[in-house]
């Protein structure tokens, strides 16, 4: 069976696969993980198939699958190539198995471990200047977050489909090779630099005016670092630290009864 003569070819097929790749985690579940989402994303490949062939195609792609959602497009492209060459039944499982793990690690380290927190910190920095500046606007902060994250995100999603459909499973090499590792190191360096910058600006801008509030900042910094080491959620640290701040504000003379 081949899907080489799919009703969608070339550009339209790539656009369709790209658009559907955004739903690869919609039915994420502990058993099959992204299985239903991957099958949904690949459906444009099966448009020209007869009903029994389409059924076989779908059954083939409802098996276990998991990777980083941004990098899933490399697998989608590679599976599309195998199906177009009539080797889908033979190669799909191997492609998913061999590509899923390395792509997951690459995507997690770049997108989750660096780009996403970096986007948040850059946007927070812009927001702090907006909030404490003389003339402020909400848009620079929003745009900063969306652009810093989505430029690499959309690029990798689009490129994954193109590279995967051209090179098959070998396409994953470009995101597991030394060039990509350098990109991760640079992104993590930028993240660390921005975190230092945000800490100073966020403390200085609203003004840690008293020694007690400055001491609380240092205490919270240590607490958050320790909690992260012990895998305690930032939500818990936020709650504990927030109550301490509140007590400081109320008993420090900032509050009272009308």
């Amino acid at each position: 069976m081949t899907v080489g003569r799919s009703k969608l070819n070339g550009f339209a097929l790539h656009v369709s696969l790209f658009a559907r790749s955004f739903f690869v985690q919609s039915v994420w579940n502990p058993r099959g993980m992204q299985n239903v989402g991957l099958c949904f994303a690949l459906l444009p490949l099966a448009r020209s198939l007869s009903e029994p062939e389409k059924r076989k195609f779908m059954m083939r792609h409802l098996g276990f699958f998991n990777t980083n959602p941004t990098m899933a497009s490399y697998v989608i492209g590679a599976v599309a190539r195998a199906e177009a060459q009539g080797r889908g039944a033979l190669e799909s499982d191997d492609i998913k198995l061999t590509m899923g793990g390395p792509l997951g690690m690459a995507g997690d380290s770049l997108m989750w471990g660096a780009v996403r927190p970096l986007a948040g910190l850059v946007a927070a920095l812009v927001a702090i200047y907006a909030l404490y500046g003389t003339s402020w606007s909400i848009w620079p902060a929003l745009l900063a977050l969306l652009l810093v994250y989505n430029v690499p995100h959309l690029y990798l999603r689009g490129r994954g489909i193109l590279v995967g459909s051209r090179l098959g499973a070998a396409g994953a090499r470009e995101v597991t090779g030394p060039g990509f590792k350098r990109a991760v190191i640079i992104a993590r360096g930028l993240l660390a630099f921005t975190a230092g910058l945000v800490l100073v600006v966020a403390v200085a801008r609203p003004g840690a005016t008293t020694p007690i509030s400055l001491a609380l900042v240092v205490l919270l910094l240590a607490l958050a670092s320790l909690a992260a080491r012990l895998r305690i959620s930032a939500t818990v640290v936020g709650l504990v630290g927030g109550l301490a701040w509140l007590a400081l504000e109320v008993f420090g003379g900032n509050g009272g009864v009308d």
Partner: peptide
Amino acid sequence: PALLWAAPIAAGTILLIA
């Protein structure tokens, strides 16, 4: 002081990542 409360939590978390 919402930002004063939140910034050290962010930096403390990033310290572990870095």
